[in-house]
């Protein structure tokens, strides 16, 4: 791919849409996955309530950047967004089963 072609590929609306979707998945989506996973762990970890909450909180900061990076590596923007939505949905379901959202 020539330099000029690469520049052109990086300015079209499809490219912008691609970036926008991945950004959405990598920011809001990554945070949602981290928060929901932490909620689930806070309930599920086999230790005292405060300790489970604390460990879940600490781990959440590892989940978020992992999902952010993945959103920009996924096959396509819709895969990134779909993956994050599916994972959030699964986690939200498990949180709901484990005792609701508050």
């Amino acid at each position: 791919m020539s330099k000029a072609a690469a520049l052109r590929a990086r300015s079209g609306w499809r490219y912008r849409g691609n970036v926008a979707l991945r950004t959405l998945a990598g920011t809001v989506g990554a945070y949602a996955v981290a928060a929901l996973a932490a909620m689930l762990l806070a309930r599920a970890l086999p230790m005292g309530r405060l300790e489970a909450v604390t460990v879940a909180t600490m781990l959440s900061y590892l989940f978020a950047p992992a999902v952010s990076v993945w959103a920009f590596l996924a096959r396509g923007p819709w895969v990134a967004l779909g993956g994050v939505v599916a994972l959030s949905g699964l986690l939200a379901g498990l949180v709901w089963i484990s005792g609701g959202f508050a």
């Binding site: 909620m39 806070a42 909450v53 879940a56 959202f101």
Partner: peptide, 16 residues
């Protein structure tokens, strides 16, 4: 982590 109760309050509300 020092600001966890503000930026990641969800596990706290799940637990408490």
């Amino acid at each position: 982590l020092t600001l966890a109760s503000l930026n990641m309050p969800w596990p706290i509300s799940a637990g408490y």
